[in-house]
Design a protein around this nucleic acid. Structure first.
Lengths: 224, 224, 224, 224
DNA sequence: GATGAATGAGGGTTCATTCAT
DNA sequence: AATGAATGAACCCTCATTCAT
């Protein structure tokens, strides 16, 4: 799987919904549009308040006026990027098939996929994570318009999970949640680590193996 | 256990380290110092960027100049408050004794304690939580100067945990982590809920029972 | 008398002076030229500063570039419209014949005519009125380039008025001025009213009668 | 009567209502406050939209921040100045006594007074006139909060006028209106003149005499 | 210590005008 | 002729920080 860093963003336009596709900026010539979106995402990763439209236009190499010609307001730009990120990442997740009904299997596949997507779309994925925080801080009450695709998928997997696999003496709902939280906790740990260790790519194999071990443990402990 | 809302903050000065105690503002007359700290904490709970020094001075009833006389910059004020909160809350945690070496017992006690401390020091605890987020956003890379007392204690409990209680066929390190993440995941869920349900105090009992159930499940699944 | 609202503007091109006729925009195909002029007038009625060239081009269905291709600057566009309105309205006034030399008769006829022209050319007349204000505000000192056709006609009627109709004990120049100012004052009152009462068309008859009463009073008081 | 040009504004603070007196800016040291108010008035005479806060602060010799420290928004500044002008000019008018019930006498006195006040407070009077126009354009619907002191006084004089002085064969209401409009028309003419002839002070005597002649004529024509 | 008036760089936004196509 | 993307100076406003008193 390729890494989509700061270029080739537009190879994923097919994931976008009509609303985003119809946006003024989407009719801009590819290279420039990409420059704008990337510059804006990079800036907004700092958080909404920390992001400066001045920096964005400088980094995108366009004029102040043009940015506002496309987006009207800073807020609209942010919302656009957020929706855009949701759809790119959501599209990737939707493209994946989770045939099994074994929750541990699925959650393991999901983890592998998540890690691949973080590598494939570091910028977009980064914005997605950061934007949910910004939203809470700056636009509380407007978050409901946006659906976190990862959480959505987790929820779906949870619902579809085969409860009969769980030991009879354990509450299956709780057992499943524990599996989920274990993965979440492990990921959070990685994120914390990732912030300090700039490049933890070399550790990937070990990390993946370790998560596998956690899931194996849970399977031994919670499954029949 | 008493509730320490917006007064009586100074009853906990004995928790403070020398560095904080030596701070310029600590020599201010008690009542005024408390007003300043409380006002500042209330404001910073909104997040660093959303906090206005103007609001702080108005709400503390002091002049703009005085605030900067004591703290030099907004950042220094924020760092002071953060350290202050860490030491108050850290002091409380340190005052508690965790005699057992059963990790589940300890983590349960820790949860009970956490909930009591949130009630006792709503302001200080609130700032603590919010400040870790602000830090990440506004001063990335300076967080290492601050030790989250809750995490510290968890770490200690983890280290001291009696591994022999864990089923022999399970990796005890991983099992303990799973217990930890389950509690974390449960708490995060509550926080998410708490943001929506303004006042979830009436649900405390149910919540506590539910967490207990999770831990019981884990005991059944992971312990000998 | 027909109402010339937002179409048929060009039926009055014969009123236009050579300068206007020679203007770049006048060689544009009729229908489009009309769209441009009407859109621009509608917008400038709001006042020069409140008028947006963006709105004009959207409402005229032309491109931004084309507008500036024809008019160079917003100011030139405004001047063009102003002159255009002066000539249309001025043409109408000039087409009227004031045979009498009785000033009161003439001023009464003038009032009737004014009201008919306001109905016939609501847009052009509206712009004319609004533009004189805008000028004062935005281009003070350039107003002398434009002659208000109504004032011009009043002046002419004033000059031609038969002084011998005025009572011998009164200064005829002053008496005539008083007649003029009475009509002006009455009209101003109506305008003030008109701003509040959105549609005072139903009151026309009463209004006309009342003005007649004022003029009768003046005739009784000032004439032999 | 002295001329209050661009200094000595504050000699008239006693005319101000409590609301204005309580305004933040009124506690500024006299000389600076005057500089601010004068600079702002001079700028706003151009009209609200044409006025730039940048120009005001430069001309007042203060920083951008300070202006907004006092007034919050451009609009609030404008409203303040408007109210201020109304109260200064209104105060002057209220200080005058109109004992007679002869409308012509009163309106003559009023004209003399108006002319003196225009000379005494050229800036404040100028703003007052200009502000009523700006209001209509920019804040339609908020004008009702402000009472034009001149119109108010005219209305009062009109109401109190002794109708029995008017010729029995004339409608006294209309006759009085004609007197009013004559003065208004004459003043408007002067204003138009004044705009062109920068300094029409040398003509004052002639002007005053001429208005007197108009009123004498009206007395001859309309009174018993 | 204590005040709060004063600063000014930076923020987001608007809009007449230009210019490559 | 015709387009509309692109410009950038100017706009109003904010706010942490300073400093004379």
């Amino acid at each position: 799987m390729e890494v989509i860093g700061i270029d080739r963003l537009l190879d994923f336009d097919h994931f976008l919904c009509e609303e985003i596709k119809a946006h003024k900026v989407m009719s801009v010539e590819d290279e420039k549009r990409q420059r704008i979106i990337i510059a804006a995402m990079q800036e907004f990763i700092k958080g909404y308040r920390n992001a400066s439209t001045d920096t964005i236009v400088k980094s995108a190499g366009i004029s102040k006026g043009l940015l506002f010609h496309y987006f009207g307001t800073k807020k609209e730009l942010f919302f656009f990027l957020f929706q855009y990120a949701i759809e790119i990442i959501g599209g990737e997740y939707k493209a994946a098939h989770f045939e099994s009904r074994d929750f541990i299997d699925n959650i393991w596949q999901l983890s592998l996929l998540a890690r691949r997507l973080i590598n494939k779309h570091p910028l977009v994925y980064g914005l997605l994570a950061s934007a949910f925080f910004s939203f809470q801080e700056v636009f509380p009450g407007e978050l409901h318009n946006f659906q976190n695709p990862v959480e959505e998928l987790k929820q779906k997997l949870l619902e579809r999970a085969d409860r009969s696999l769980i030991r009879d003496d354990l509450d299956p709902e709780k057992a499943l949640r524990i599996i989920l939280w274990t993965v979440d906790g492990y990921s959070a740990e990685l994120t914390r680590l990732g912030r300090q260790v700039a490049d933890y790519e070399p550790h990937y194999d070990r990390i993946e193996k370790e998560l596998g071990d956690y899931l194996t443990l849970l399977r031994n402990a919670l499954y029949k």
